[in-house]
Design a protein around this nucleic acid. Structure first.
Lengths: 129, 129, 129, 129
DNA sequence: GTGGTCTAGACCACG
DNA sequence: GTGGTCTAGACCACA
């Protein structure tokens, strides 16, 4: 799995890492139960600080995406990721809302917006087909 | 128009302000050409520093949402906001992608996701109907 | 002579006025000795504040472009504008320098820059031919 | 690279800073990809507030002159500055026009004006020759 | 009264 | 250590 970081982005590196790993899971490039590189090796592979990788892993663990075993190392949660709960959906709406508001102001139609979402969905589901 | 800030959020206050004003424009609560409160009055209304309001206004100006008119003060761009260009859509996709990836991991179906988007769209377009 | 102000510009209105009048003189639309509208009438014509017009006139007087007679009103300096002195040229260079520096950074060649200047010169000298 | 500010000038300090840095880039004293001092160190070197430096940096970033790299700090845009587009040229003409108009009024000939521009150009291109 | 600029000092997230 | 954010208070130019 390829990690692609933008060091000039406003998005913190550890956040980009989190997103990239989640995308890898969504794209089924990394299956539940499968192992991830150790903090140390991943950090040196990408050329970033240990702390940064660690922070990403901690957040992924926090959100139930991965488990961190002292011995087995880092693995994708074999039970799968916790399903979306009300809380998650509330958060999702909160994130979506400003994107949609600005899109409306910029004359992006609802159809076009939904079409864009579908296109992105395909990017991931194509991998599972 | 009501401004509702969350001082506990990680999202910077000025960003929240930007979003809220954009939402106000999307909801057509503030019409093009209409005036916005002065930096000082808005700041004291919300109970934040005028520099924070100013930063929000500067960003909105930068993005073409508002103009700073020497006589009328701060006004919503009467020509409307610049339409979505390729750049904006690229940015939009970049913002949408991690939300969709995580939703997939959490077993949110595409239909459900699109339905949520539609619901949010209605929040705004209901105002114009 | 037409005055064309941009109320959304960063350039103060009185400065814009000063520039427009100087351009009028350069374009020979207003000849030396000729009269300019009174502060009051110009202000109401353009729809701006008296003080603003006054400030512009004061600066033009200061720079030797116009004379303000108590009775004859405002007239373009019949002796012509003071020639460029060393001081003016120093100032001119100081204003030109950042424009040229940025142009170089943006890959505007010297020829292109000079050509642009010539084109602008023609705008004025065409009027005298 | 030397920074030379005039605290008596009407030109805001942060603007002067922006210009000086652009001149430094034009003079090739700072090469693309090369680092600039941190906000704090530059501020204390010059003896101004760090916010003032920051404002200058933000504007340079906005205009594509510099990047804020999460690891390398502030660097001159390695891809070079965006070329002059129609918009920039329009702006340039708008800035040049009043300078030329006043020069005409003050009897500066076109040749002399162009010669001055050339002289300034040499100031920068001499560095690359 | 407005926005624009500058200063000063503080806290935080990031790497 | 960095930049990002927020506050507070000041002065000035503009209209």
């Amino acid at each position: 799995m390829l990690i692609n970081l933008d060091f000039e982005s406003n998005e913190p590196i550890y956040q980009q890492l989190v997103h990239q790993i989640i995308e890898g899971i969504a794209r089924k490039e990394i299956a539940p139960g499968e192992g991830l590189p150790s903090v140390r090796s991943l950090a040196s592979d990408i050329g970033i600080n240990l702390h940064t990788v660690n922070k990403a892993y901690q957040q992924l663990k926090q959100d139930g995406f991965i488990l961190i075993h002292r011995q087995k190392g880092v693995v994708v949660n074999p039970d799968g990721v916790p399903k979306a709960d009300a809380n998650y959906k509330k958060q999702l709406e909160k994130n979506l809302r400003p994107l949609i508001a600005e899109s409306i102001c910029r004359d992006v139609s609802e159809e076009e917006f939904l079409r864009l979402c579908s296109t992105i969905f395909e990017t991931y589901q194509g991998g599972s087909a």
